[in-house]
Structure formats: structure tokens, C-alpha cells
Design a protein around this nucleic acid. Sequence first.
RNA 1: GUGGGCGUAGCUCAGCUGGUAGAGCACCCGGUUGUGGUCCGGGAUGUCGCGGGUUCGAGCCCCGUCGCUCACCCCA
Length: 423
Amino acid sequence: MSKKNQIQAPKGVSEYVPPHSRKFESVREALLAPARSAGYELIELPVFEDTELFTRGVGESTDVVSKEMYTFEDRGGRSITLRPEGTAGVMRAVIEHGLDRGQLPAKLYYSGAFFRAERPQAGRYRQFYQVGIEAIGTQDSALDAEVIAIADAGFKSIGLQKYRLEITSLGDAQSRAKHRVDLVAYIEKLDLDDATKTRATINPLRLFDDKREEVKKQMATAPLLLDYLSEKSRKDFEEVQKHLKALGVEFTVNPRMVRGLDYYTGTTFEFVHDLLGAQSGIGGGGRYDGLMAELGGQELSGIGFGLGIDRCVLAAEAEGISFDQEFTSDLFIIPLGDESKTSALTIAQQLRSSGLRVEISFGDRALKGSMKAADKSGAAYVIVLGESEISSGTVELKEMSTGKTSSVTLASLQKHLLSVSSK
RNA sequence: GUGGGCGUAGCUCAGCUGGUAGAGCACCCGGUUGUGGUCCGGGAUGUCGCGGGUUCGAGCCCCGUCGCUCACCCCA
């Protein structure tokens, strides 16, 4: 609630506080794990970059660059922009650090906050979170398929089911040029309002994405880029599909798919969730042939994706997926009296070093209150630590789910807990 | 940038045709000495988003403003 002098978060940012943040953490780790298993390595980059990186990399004709960037001047008079997406920054860093001079493909993953100055709505925030990967320097349909499969594995490991994968190919430069000529000619004959016409001159492909029925109808017979693919592009695209089938990754070919960033070429894909609102894309990506050269690097092709953590959290909630059990402690220690607090601290420290999750009851509440706290924490076991336990070296280990207790010596507590801990 | 909906305790909300606020959940304490989940008793919490107007009187009406939210646009 907004009180008089209370400072609120800036408009449209997503925040995750406990217990909700558990979901965020679980989702992020689930999305990242398949990339790590496939040999991708972390790249951690600044959230702000030289504005030119995005105008050149992402493309000035995109809405992202033309009206959605957080751009400001720093104290040295440089134009700085909060990163609206991840790929351009990764390419900049790859070139700057010469990662493209080593073994290829360079395989990188990232995770972090991105910024777009849009009007917020369900699943769309001004600061949002993405994980992504980029595989740079190798042109191979098998790599395209693997990248897509890594994203798919991430969604599956969250437990998501109600999503679908759409793929297409944007072909090479010549294919796109030929198609564009025909598409523009086709669009010129249509009955469209001025705003839409303007949009079409900036990027005619955008009209395929229009949600209005009258536009959809008119675009129904528009020339499709897939029909213009060169022999090589067509073969590559078929290879990708063959590999995806072998991997058991389900997909549909959507020749009308449109992506918002200008650098995509060749294989392009998008994951869409069925239970989300208007913002239903949970991830997407594709190959980009010209980006590296555009940014002053070698003529190398890359492929990657960005997955929306926020939207995956929303999707997981919509599907009723819960993550809570991953976040409960193995043991809850209740010290009685000030003297036993030292023991509680040292015992907890020792148990934690073996990977157990251990909490202590703090403050001076009564035993009953501490037991309640233990119950609510979801801890599997509880011990009460008083003078008698410390002097005898034996505690009553209580299993919270059954209420049963058993006598365990402090010396064997760790071994005991490790044997029953699932983690 | 354009449009719709909504702003009452930490959360979810109730508040009849205007008479100066309530429930459930959560939280804290207790129900005789050191063991939770049920039950019972007790307690704290709101300038009813903010500002102005109408009125004897406004959470309820009017105007403005800010915020949240959903959709368009665009996209993760």
C-alpha cells in the first residue's frame, strides 16, 4: 500500500521476495542446468553498454531500439543504454576478449536483468530476467538443433508441459532480399491504415504478426519466406528438423513467425506457453550470420536463445507446479538458555559444512514458540539443546513428519542426518 | 503512446439507498515447570492511495492526481 512518505519500486519492475523467490531461483537454475551440462560456460557482463552496441547490433528499425531503450548520458558525456537483450553484449565481449580466436564454437551462458521502457502488463516488465546461451563461430545444423533442445530441456526440467515450439528459417541474405521484393509488392496492394503501412516499410515481415482479423485475412495469401529459401538454406532447415525429431523435441513449422530483433538469419524459433496472457512467449532465439561482422568482428555466424525467467515462473504457476520442498531445512536447533546458544551455533556450523541445511531458533521465545517456528520452517528434524543435552552429549532427534523421537549422540548427529537426508 | 478495470489491516477481501471501519488467514502471547501441527483465550495492526469539493456528516457521491492491473502496440 502506498503510504505518504513511502518509497515504492519503480513502475513495472518484477521483484521476487520470499517465499515467491524460491520459484524464481528454481526456475532460473532449471533453465541453466542443461546449458552447463552441454559445456556452456558463464559469461557475466555489464547491464549497461555503449548505446551504439544496440543501435548497430539489434537494429534501429526494431521497436526495442527505437522506443524501448533506457538511454542516458553518463558523467563523461557518453551515451549509455541499459541492456534490452543479451546477444549483442555477448558478441561485443567475444570480440573484445578474442573468444572467437580459440576453439569454436565459443559456448557461453548468461543470466541476469534486462531493461525495456515499455508499458507494463502481465508478463511484461521494465526490468525482467532472462537466461540465455550463445554458440558462436560454427555453422552446423546439429548445433542449431542442440541449442533448441537445451532450451526445451530447461522448460521440461521446470516441469512445464503446456508449451509449444515453433520454428522457421529466415534463410540467407539473398533469400530474404528476393522475398522482400515480392512481399512489399504484395503489401502495397492491400487496404491498410497509415500506421500499418509505415510499419510495413520498416519491416514488412511484421505484418505477419498482426493480431487484427482484417489484416490476418489479407496476409493469408502473402508470399512466405520459406518458399524463397536457397538450396543450402532449405537443406540446413531440413537437417535441423531431422535432428530435432531424433531428439524427441516436438515442434511445428510456422512460416509466419516474426521476431523482434533484426539480426536473425537462418534457423529461428520461439517457445510459446498456452496458459499465459498476451505475453505468451517464454523464450526464443535463432541464428545470426551478420551480427559479429556488424559489430566489427570476424565474419562468423552464431546461434543462441533468450528465455524469460519471469514468464517461466508465471507459466509454472499457471500449471500448478510447486518447488517448496527443495527449500526446507534438514534440522532445526532449539537452544534453551543463553549458554546453549554457543553450542547451537557451533553444531550448526559443523553440520552445514557437510552440506546439511540447518537453522537455529533465535530470540528468547518459549519452547512452544520455537517448536511452532520449526514446524513452519518445514524442517525435517528438530533437536532441543539444553544443559542436560550438552552435558550428556545426547539429544532427542525428533522427526517432524511422524512426531517420533530417537536418542542420538551429538557426535553421530551428522552421520545420522546425512543418511536420512535426500540431498 | 492509446484504452478498460481497480485502489479498505502483512495477505485475500466485506462494508446495504452516505451516519466517522470489519472478517478470514498470517503474526505475537498464554492455556501451570523442556517439545510443533488441532482446539480455546488474549493481543498488536489501518490518517479506507493522495488532494480538493458536495454534505450537519463520506470508505461510500463529484473532480483531480498518483499508483496498480489488463489489453493494444511490441516482446522474454
